[in-house]
Amino acid sequence: MSKGLYLYPKWIRLWHITNAVLFLILIVTGISLQFSGQDEPFVLVSFKTAVSWHNGAAFFLTLSYVVFVIGNSVTGNIRHYRNNSSTYIQDLLKQFNYYRRDMFRGEPHPFPVTEESKFNPLQRFSYVLAMYAGMPLLIISGILLFYPGMLPRNIFGVSGLLITDLVHIATGFLLSIFMVIHIYTCTLGSKPTTLFKSMVDGYHHDDH
């Protein structure tokens, strides 16, 4: 029996799991920092521990992101992130309607996975947004918060630190939301665990 398409080489799977673990650490420690206090319900880690773990995880996440960007370019994996369709919006709507309605009617997947196109239009859109807009913003704002001396003291009468922090927290929050949706959509394979299995062995096991 064929294992299916080999879509996720080792380096992507390694990067993906590293990214996921680091991001989870950053979410837990980030929430602990944002809502720090003695009687706060969201604090899972003490402030001091959260500071060092957040800084450490952020350092490795930045490294991992550099690996991802370089790896994507060098191996040609970046082609899956490029949109070549002239019906981009319609494709997005079609995919959205599939998740919203058509999948419950038992209709086939509108954009079956192939070796040349492993992401559907919604995936492509959200991955580009997350990896090429969200992540750089998160990393740059994080570096600026780590080296606050680089920031202007005031931007339009508001603390430069405060604005950078808002950007950092808002981006982190949106990426966390992305992660929740990403994890959920990964349960939409033929079985809830099929797509997760792909990220372990590298093969796409579904027939769509």
Binding site: L33, S36, G37, G157, V158, S159, L162, I169, F173, I177
Partner: peptide
């Protein structure tokens, strides 16, 4: 506005908004 302290510089409106978005996403799921 001129100051910033991690853990203390909270915005109550953004806090509620993020909670609302999060709950909205969970509801849709």
């Amino acid at each position: 506005n001129r100051s910033y302290v991690i853990g203390a510089s909270r915005n109550i409106y953004l806090g509620y908004l993020s909670l609302l978005i999060f709950l909205g996403v969970l509801s849709v799921i």
